[in-house]
Amino acid sequence: MLQAVSKLTRSEPVLPSLIRPIAPQADHSGLAGKVTEIVLQNSDFEQMTMLLPLLAQLSNDDRWFAWIAPPTTLPKDLLEAAGIDLNKVMLLQPDQGHSTYQLACQALKAGTCHAVISWPGALSSAELSGLEDAAENGQSHGIVIRDRRAA
Rank of each mutant, 00 (worst) to 15 (best):
T9M: 13
R10T: 15
S11P: 02
E12P: 07
P13V: 15
V14H: 10
S17L: 10
S17C: 15
L18P: 00
I19V: 15
R20W: 10
R20Q: 15
R20G: 05
I22T: 14
I22A: 14
A23S: 15
P24N: 08
P24C: 02
A26V: 13
D27M: 00
D27N: 11
H28C: 02
H28W: 07
S29E: 14
G30W: 03
L31S: 12
A32G: 15
A32P: 01
G33P: 01
V35D: 00
T36C: 06
T36N: 10
E37Q: 15
E37I: 07
I38W: 09
I38A: 09
V39E: 07
Q41H: 11
Q41P: 04
N42P: 03
N42R: 12
N42M: 08
S43W: 09
D44Y: 05
D44H: 09
D44R: 10
Q47A: 09
T49V: 11
M50W: 03
M50F: 04
L54N: 11
L54D: 11
L55N: 02
L55H: 06
L55A: 13
A56G: 05
Q57K: 12
Q57I: 04
S59H: 07
N60G: 06
N60T: 08
N60I: 03
D61L: 01
D61N: 11
D61Y: 05
D61H: 12
R63S: 05
F65W: 07
F65K: 00
F65H: 10
A66E: 02
W67E: 05
A69W: 00
A69R: 03
A69F: 04
P70K: 08
P71S: 07
P71T: 09
T72I: 05
T72D: 12
T72S: 10
T73W: 08
T73P: 02
T73A: 09
L74S: 03
L74C: 03
P75F: 07
K76T: 12
K76A: 13
D77T: 11
D77P: 00
L78Y: 06
L79Q: 04
A82H: 06
G83M: 09
G83I: 09
G83E: 04
I84A: 03
I84Q: 04
I84C: 08
I84S: 08
L86E: 04
L86G: 10
N87A: 11
K88V: 04
K88I: 01
V89I: 15
L91G: 03
L91D: 06
L91N: 09
L91F: 11
L92G: 01
Q93D: 05
Q93A: 14
P94E: 07
P94V: 06
P94D: 05
D95S: 04
Q96K: 11
Q96F: 09
Q96G: 13
H98A: 11
H98G: 02
H98D: 00
H98T: 03
H98E: 03
S99V: 08
T100R: 01
T100A: 14
L103K: 12
L103W: 06
A104V: 10
A104Q: 09
C105D: 08
Q106K: 13
Q106M: 14
A107N: 13
A107C: 15
L108R: 04
L108M: 13
A110V: 01
A110D: 13
A110T: 02
G111S: 12
G111I: 00
T112E: 15
C113L: 14
C113F: 14
H114M: 14
A115P: 03
V116A: 14
V116E: 10
I117Y: 01
I117D: 00
S118I: 00
W119S: 07
G121M: 02
G121L: 13
A122G: 09
A122Y: 15
